[in-house]
Design a protein around this nucleic acid. Sequence first.
DNA 1: ATTACTATCTCACGAGTAC
DNA 2: TGTACTCGTGAGATAGTAA
Lengths: 231, 231
Amino acid sequence: MPELKLQHILTLAELFSKGARYNFIPITTSSLGNSIKKSQQAASKHLLELESDGYIERLRTGPRVSVRITTKGHAEMLKIFSVLKSGLDVSSSYLEFRGTIISGMGEGAYYMSMKGYARQFKSKLGYVPFPGTLNVKLKDKEFIEAKRSLDAYPAIMVNGFSDGKRTYGWVKCYPARVNNSVNAALILLERTHHDDSIIELISKENIKKSTKLSTGSQVTIRVNIKPKPIS
Amino acid sequence: MPELKLQHILTLAELFSKGARYNFIPITTSSLGNSIKKSQQAASKHLLELESDGYIERLRTGPRVSVRITTKGHAEMLKIFSVLKSGLDVSSSYLEFRGTIISGMGEGAYYMSMKGYARQFKSKLGYVPFPGTLNVKLKDKEFIEAKRSLDAYPAIMVNGFSDGKRTYGWVKCYPARVNNSVNAALILLERTHHDDSIIELISKENIKKSTKLSTGSQVTIRVNIKPKPIS
DNA sequence: ATTACTATCTCACGAGTAC
DNA sequence: TGTACTCGTGAGATAGTAA
């Protein structure tokens, strides 16, 4: 809850970058107005208000004015800065899904046990999945949206293959944690029989056994994602 | 030059800190209004505007709304953040003085050569000053102000003493650089004969000789100061 | 409960201009 | 040139209220 008026932030930031923290810096209101993309009059008003609020000091030499930022101004700037920083820092980088376990087996279980897939799981995930997928019916729209947005993030790609009779589509794997206790992978299938409101997970373990959950139980799944690099 | 409206910054920051970067977070406009110290209506408007500007996505479930920050919203936040950061980072931490050299000797020269002072200079500054101070007449009000503000920053304290006949006041020393080439110390005397517009410097070297300057020349003096720690 | 409309008010901004 | 006044306009805020 900074006391500094929001509209003054950029003006103060501009003064900082002109080096006005410790020394009086000569500045014209029109150049300042230019920098903050406001009028000369607005810049003039900003300076007057910043001064009367104790964030800057002004020194007139004839028509010219020099400006210096006070300790209070500096502190206020740091306050705003840290509010923004804490917000950005907090942003935990995972997608969360909540829903209920819906079937004993999952129709994908059969396919996932096939050699063409299992081999890749072993090398790319480090294990051959327990034969049986965990199917979760998502509770709310936001989780369905979250599932859709998964596509935008990098996945472990398990390629499709052919066994001579027919072809099998690719599988995208997203390492995940079930109820914050069991490691698993959320899988997106190229050819799925599910609608958007169901997610499917594989794991080294028998997830239901490990979590002591059964059909109808509530579960929470987290998929860690990589935040975009700062650009 | 962020496109994000200034008034929306705190709202967006609040959404960030609620974890709305990747997941849809349920939030009421009144609690949001509370957090940003605006009305429920203002918060509602902020969300509508942030949405139509593409900074957030909203998902309604009955009367409730969940909110997620978009990549664009994240980018814009980082932009503002870096504008403020660059301003704060730049803030060079020195006080600058400009003026003209005024006397050949400086009246303080005699005192500064006294054993009671010289001993302390040797141990605290690391050298016995050249016998002769450099006196500079400050050019503008801002430099006189800068001199006044020196008091607020930590100095190397040279104590006063008595030689039996009379007492001599303390001397505060601020390590400085003359014309960015000669190391010196700006000194403030407890008992001074100068007015506020004159500063006095001592150095290991003969400053005028080293800088090839003489009475009447313009000089620039920089005194490094320690920025206050972030609190 | 909620959200978000309408009306009203305040105040930030820019234009014109005095100094 | 400068700064900073007055004044008109409109964006942004709140109150009241509908859905």
